[in-house]
């Protein structure tokens, strides 16, 4: 009799939710919201940028003018022209040069940190590289403006130092630390047994790296490079300060250019909200968003590729 009673009493617990149960539910909800907020923000930003740029996009947008014209004359009162070809050329040339500098630099650093350095050296280097990655872009822009500028004028004997060369170097140095970090992670992810097996065959250290480690880390390294490219496209402040900000399709690295991002940053504050100029800047924003989205997605898919192998 008593056992039945206790059992019933015990069974009552099945219908009672305790404080622990509610806390668990609450935490679950909070974590869920944080988790999907990233998606909400990305979608939200995309919707906002698209809405702001929509007026121009649907009314007077001409594909051939927008992407085919090198004339960016938004302030012309009679016939403003919105061609971003020169701006694309500016961004592309600076990013391209930056990658030429950053790729060998960051891969070399990553190989040194992951494969050659040991103990304290490795720890210090890693911290230093991360510190480099944390330097604000305006500081880099400042270096471009005050140090690189006179240096380029003096060394190459050119009239202007705020050029593709200047911005490319600055951007390359900016992108290199992040690329190094990711490339190093990719190299570290290569199991040591691969290295040991290759070493046991009598391979030299370079042969081990070249024949075994690099091929095994290939995807991660590609991902690092693509993230660097994404960084180059998206960087604004340093590029604004170091390029010279002149609308121009560059003929050489000693020409000044203007980047897509820098154009938005410099002009948005001066346009009337809702005006055509304002809307065009947002259209550039959509374009940049799409490019960086595609680059990051590709990088992500590639990096994921290694894990599934």
């Amino acid at each position: 009799m008593t056992t039945t009673q206790t059992r019933e009493a015990m069974n009552e617990q099945f219908d009672r939710r305790t404080l622990d149960w509610y806390i668990d539910k609450l935490v679950e909800i909070i974590v869920f919201i944080s988790g999907i907020s990233a998606i909400i923000f990305v979608v939200g930003i995309f919707v906002f940028v698209t809405m702001e740029g929509m007026g121009f996009l649907f009314d007077s947008f001409s594909f051939s003018e927008f992407f085919g014209s090198e004339y960016w004359e938004p302030s012309d009162e009679d016939a403003p022209e919105y061609g971003i070809l020169a701006l694309i050329a500016g961004t592309a040339s600076v990013t391209g040069l930056a990658m030429l500098i950053a790729i060998p630099f960051s891969l070399g650093t990553a190989i040194y940190i992951a494969e050659f350095s040991t103990g304290k050296t490795r720890e210090y280097l890693k911290v230093l590289v991360e510190l480099l990655a944390a330097i604000p872009s305006v500081v880099w822009g400042f270096i471009g403006l005050t140090i690189m500028n006179p240096l380029i004028i003096e060394i190459f004997d050119v009239p202007v130092g705020l050029t593709v060369l200047n911005a490319g170097i600055i951007l390359g140095l900016m992108a290199a630390p992040i690329m190094t970090s990711i490339a190093e992670d990719a190299l570290k992810a290569v199991p040591d047994r691969y290295r040991e097996a290759a070493e046991a065959l009598g391979a030299t250290r370079w042969q081990v790296i070249y024949k075994t480690v690099l091929p095994a880390a290939k995807n991660g390294l590609l991902g690092a490079i693509l993230l660097g490219v994404g960084r180059g496209f998206g960087e604004t402040m340093a590029v604004l300060m170091a390029t010279g900000h002149a609308v121009n399709i560059p003929g050489s690295v000693f020409d000044s250019v203007r980047a897509l991002t820098a154009t938005i940053a410099a002009e948005l504050g001066e346009t009337a909200v809702g005006s055509e100029h304002y809307q065009v800047l947002f259209t550039i924003g959509i374009f940049l968003f799409l490019i960086t989205f595609v680059i990051n997605l590709t990088a992500d898919l590639i990096v994921r590729g290694i894990k599934n192998q």
Binding site: R193, Y194, E196, A197, E199, A200, T204, T212, P215
Partner: peptide, 20 residues
């Protein structure tokens, strides 16, 4: 040392198929 290692063949306890 590479010359020595190339004359000694090693088979590790856990198989290592190199990623090639």
């Amino acid at each position: 040392v590479y010359a020595l290692r190339s004359r000694i063949g090693v088979v590790f306890p856990l198989p290592v198929g190199l990623p090639m």
